[in-house]
């Protein structure tokens, strides 16, 4: 076990973990932030998407040992009071069905909007292709991203 100082959602936290432990499991098992979801473990589904220094990354592929000095943001820290334009748009469009993939979808979409404030359909498709929704809420995810872009 080694000790790591991590900046998670604007707060410094000290965690003890094996060096190869992916951030996904550090967040879920060590820190108790379970909003970031396990889906595939091989960066193919996007359920574990978090932000590292503002960029969308798959936390199942990020060993904790490489995370010191990075700014880590999870769904729990996306906004202080659940008021991110994407969260509002998710409410407005009632996007989720089962809801399991949605934190990853929102985090991925948030990174898209921070890089491109007015994405067209192709931009959204390209950015969101890595996030699977097994329930098939794609129509609403896309609509909600457009609404959020408009309201940002």
């Amino acid at each position: 076990m080694a000790t790591y100082n991590l900046n998670i959602n604007g707060k410094m936290q000290t965690v003890e973990a094996e060096s190869d432990t992916p951030m996904l499991w550090v967040l879920r098992d060590v820190i108790g932030l379970v909003g970031t979801k396990y889906g595939c473990g091989i960066a193919q589904c996007g359920a574990c998407t978090i932000h590292i220094d503002g960029q969308a990354m798959r936390s199942c592929q990020l060993p904790v040992s490489a995370m010191e000095s990075k700014k880590i943001t999870t769904i729990e820290g996306l906004s202080a009071d659940a008021s991110h334009p994407l969260q509002d748009a998710w409410r407005q469009h009632d996007v989720p069905q089962c809801g399991y993939c949605q934190a990853g979808q929102i985090m991925n979409a948030a990174a898209l909007l921070s890089n491109n404030s007015n994405p067209n359909d192709q931009d959204i498709d390209d950015a969101m292709r890595g996030n699977i929704c097994r329930c098939g809420t794609y129509n609403r995810i896309k609509a909600a991203i457009k609404t959020a872009a408009k309201n940002s």
């Binding site: 098992d29 379970v34 909003g35 659940a82 969260q87 409410r91 989720p96 809801g99 949605q102 934190a103």
Partner: peptide, 29 residues
């Protein structure tokens, strides 16, 4: 009438909601 999902707040803020999110004192994996 259209009524929003009653779990929407938990879903969009990443609160514990699913079976996999279960944590208990002394729990092992």
């Amino acid at each position: 009438t259209d009524r929003g999902n009653v779990d929407i707040e938990e879903i969009i803020t990443g609160k514990p909601l699913f079976g996999i999110d279960t944590k208990r004192e002394g729990m092992m994996y």
